Amino acid sequence: MQSRPVTEASLPLQTARLVLRELDIDDAAFMLELLNDADFLGNIGDRGVRTLEDARRYIVNGSMASYAQHGFGFWAVLPVGTDTCIGICGLARRESLDDADIGYAFLPAWRGQGYAFEACSAVMRLAREHFGLERIVAITALENPASARLLEKIGLRFERLIHPHDEAQALRLFGWNA
């Protein structure tokens, strides 16, 4: 099914405690910190972002390009009433996967408080109701049982191990079907 662009009616997306909005180049310092967090590097991978300029390029070539091409991407996650980015959550199209992929990452101080579940639940609703996606997948490292539990909590189920061409180790593939 073809994605529809996000409209003002769909983003920023607000939950009880969070706002999800598009990333822009002003979020470079936040992204630099997030992409170099030890857990991000260990569970998601090294994106080679080492400077603010690298972070700006990453945002422009990643999420901003995805918004233009697919209508979705990774969105900044902020507590309601603040300008503080605490994480990212959203949907991606990856060459190694046939379907839209839900993903998330949060800074260490904001983990373990239910924010990832709240943000992912909102993104799943947006994916189904706004974009009309009939299948959503997610991938996790074998050594990341917390992410596996969260994915199951939002309705995805483990399907199989995969070996994407750009990953050295096997990953778990989870899926949700309408």
Rank of each mutant, 00 (worst) to 15 (best):
M1H: 05
S3I: 01
P5S: 12
E8Y: 02
E8C: 11
A9G: 13
R17Y: 05
R21W: 02
D27W: 00
A28G: 06
L35W: 03
L35S: 06
F40T: 12
L41P: 04
N43V: 02
I44C: 10
R47G: 10
E53M: 03
E53F: 01
D54E: 05
Y58M: 09
V60L: 08
V80A: 15
G81V: 06
C85N: 11
G87V: 05
A92S: 12
A92F: 00
R93L: 05
R93Q: 10
P108H: 05
Y115W: 07
E118I: 07
A119S: 06
V123A: 14
R125H: 10
E129A: 09
L133C: 06
L133R: 02
E134Y: 02
E134R: 14
R135N: 08
R135S: 14
A138G: 11
E143I: 07
N144F: 03
N144P: 12
A148Q: 07
A148L: 02
R149F: 13
L150I: 10
E152A: 14
R157I: 12
F158E: 13
L161G: 10
I162R: 03
H165S: 15
D166Y: 05
E167S: 12
E167H: 11
A168F: 00
R172E: 14
W176E: 07
N177R: 09
